[in-house]
């Protein structure tokens, strides 16, 4: 290592940097350093950030509703009010938000805390965003899951052989 450095020399800055990152053991520290620098810049320029109050899909809380964190109004098979980015691209927007399966409606009528359970029946605001208005994200996400498990199972099976 020492010899190589002397031989390949104390060249220009570029060749030194290029030699440093050509060793892939240095890759992670180099990248981590870059992120840390940008995070520090972010910390210093923090006053320049402002939270935009006019957000799409704003969250409203209505503590008296049994669906509390997720209550966006609307009855099944009627449209709820949803502030999407491009409502004109989604003619049936709000219908998924308003829909509750009969079982969820039963829970909502019985208990005050339906919204805090992990019951995830189809319907509601999250499904509206995940399946409908931003459905392409979810498609890519499941494809990533597919690819990752393909990698894992390929390596696993090769190890088994």
């Amino acid at each position: 290592m020492r010899e190589r450095e002397i031989r390949e020399g104390h060249g220009s800055m570029v060749s030194r940097i290029s030699r440093f990152i050509s060793d892939f053991d240095n890759l992670v520290p180099a990248y981590a350093l870059m992120i840390a620098c940008v995070a520090l810049i972010g910390l210093l320029t923090l006053p320049l950030l402002t939270y935009e109050p006019d957000q799409i899909y704003p969250k409203t809380l209505n503590p008296s509703s049994p669906l509390n964190p997720y209550d966006r109004g609307g009855a099944p098979f009627t449209a709820a009010e949803v502030h999407a980015q491009y409502p004109e691209n989604a003619p049936y927007i709000g219908y998924v938000t308003g829909y509750l399966t009969p079982l969820s409606r039963f829970f909502a009528a019985t208990t005050q805390y339906m919204g805090t359970t992990i019951v995830a029946h189809p319907g509601g605001i999250i499904d509206e965003i995940l399946y409908y208005t931003r459905g392409l994200d979810t498609i890519v996400e499941t494809s990533i899951l597919f690819v990752a498990f393909a990698v894992a199972s390929f390596l696993y099976r090769r190890r088994e052989e």
């Binding site: 980015q85 491009y86 691209n89 931003r134 392409l136």
Partner: peptide, 12 residues
Amino acid sequence: PALFSIPFGDIV
């Protein structure tokens, strides 16, 4: 100039 656009809901 944008040649064409394909809308997928919010993602155009």
